[in-house]
Design a protein around this nucleic acid. Sequence first.
RNA 1: GGUGCGUUAGCGAAGUUGGUUAUCGUGCCUCCCUGUCACGGAGGAGAUCACGGGUUCGAGUCCCGUACGCACCGCCA
Length: 580
Amino acid sequence: MNRDHTCGELRKTDEGKHVRLCGWVAKRRNLGSIVFIDLRDRYGITQITFDENHSELVKDVRNEYVIEVEGTVAVKQTANPKLETGEIEVLCDSCKILSSAKTTPMIIADETDALEELRLKYRYLDIRRNPIKDKLILRDKIATIVRKVLHDDDFVEVETPILSKSTPEGARDYLVPSRLYKGKFYALPQSPQQYKQLLMIGGMDRYFQIARCFRDEDLRADRQPEFTQIDIEMSFADEEDIFTEVEKVMKAIFKEVKGINDLEFPRIRYVDAMDRYGSDKPDLRFGNEMVTVSDLFKGSAFAVFSNCVKEGGIIKAVVFHNAAEKISRKKFDELNEFVKIYKAKGLAYLKYDNDEFTGSLNNALPAEEKEALKQFLSLKNGDVVFLVADRKNIAETALGALRKKLGEELELIDKNAYRFAWITEFPMYEFSEEENRWVSAHHPFTAPRDEDVDKLSNDQANCYSRAYDLVINGYELLSGSVRIHDSMMQKKVFDALGLTEEQIRNKFGFFIEAFDYGAPPHCGVGIGLERLTMILSGTDNIKDVVAFPKTASAYCLMSDAPNTVDQDQLDFLSLEIKKD
RNA sequence: GGUGCGUUAGCGAAGUUGGUUAUCGUGCCUCCCUGUCACGGAGGAGAUCACGGGUUCGAGUCCCGUACGCACCGCCA
């Protein structure tokens, strides 16, 4: 055994003990004949002191050397309140270098040093620092709580294949060529969706898995190509059962990690979320709900507004109190550009301050229309109202994005708040312009609302599903649905998606067949473990909660993956790389 | 696929309307120092200014392209 204590555990009460510690040299302070070393491991930092008789021992020791020291615990003359071990030091009488280290490309002790790019290249060094280390430990803690709560409720953890079958609907698959079956491919799972439903048919009525998932799509600050889903499925259950179980898991996590006991889980229908927040993952930590004001401007003298309504568009408004002084002309121009990112034609605004109107709409609108708007929105001095007139989904999305942006910039968000909401009754389908057909909004195994069953294949636009998301603070934390367990219903959905008999048999044959042998009603969710860890650790960067993440172009700066392979390997797989 | 921003010693940054020897902090090396804990003091080394092209008497600075990084839109059943 190298050590008998970690660098984080010694206290005043250990005074006089002879101890052996191991760790990395975080800092060396050489005062002449006395030398101090901060020795670091993942548990903390302990000061090792070398007096005049022992300073020779550390003559050659540099930062990030791995050393083993022995010595006596002593109480410091003056404590360092910044360290948990700050009241003691170890008076060293023996020091062994276990490993030397070159000058590191970043300073480990300075947690703000180095840009993300460098930190990714030397990820193992970044993991020595608290910000990443703490998040990895938190992630483990969350997974442990999840396992405990679910096991206590009779859920069984089952591992499903990583080498699986490509699914036509949904995200792009990562593919793995088969050696034994020339020209054939495994696909890495986008989620264990079909397997877990088959587990339900297998009678494994309460299943969960902490499952790796893979999607070959472009990345974002909260999206990696491989990620982990806390995947749960229950038989003989509906929305109420799964909501209760998920809320139980969340309550346990937030209680243990944050000491929070008063979580609420309101429910908002998808259409209402879009109407009020312009997002299916609304941030409920602040108000500023959007309002539809189309009726006020049906016959507006301002042609942009009246024409918009005439053409079936919508006018959405959002009010920010006490913002009049904060929104300059320049700022407004920036916001006007911002909404264009979301395809909106433009942003209009009206300030009401000192009992008069100013802003881009002031001259465009006649006095009575401004007054009507003021009445309708109960405008007070200092208010700024932003309006977008456009097609419904564009107006909602663009103004919703503006609401979120200004909520952040005007500091309306309580950073310590955690506001959940179940978003329910998502659309069953959405129209893909690209493919010129209806595609599943969630996935094709999602059950429709009972009242929409007859719309399944002839009124896709107005067909809503029993899919739900749990959102928190503007993030989609999980997605799930009540599944179809009736093969006739499943067939109808495939029909509506325009899949041919042959495509269905080829892609989902084994899955469909299973439903002919007795399928229980079932539902489930997939919780994004990284998102949950992000929210609980207060970062908005998913890379911070992944041990070895990829860059925005899905590249690993540390290992240089993906990379070329030997010709031999290609030959085994009967693969040839096309020349450009 | 698209848009925006960025790339300057090991690291983090500054660099004005284009103008002589590219600045600061930190880390690194050497020396001094017995109570530091962001130790202090003195000295030193360390830069193809991402890469390629262009404009110019002259480019870190302006223009075009490429690569990489970040964020966003599309995409993510």
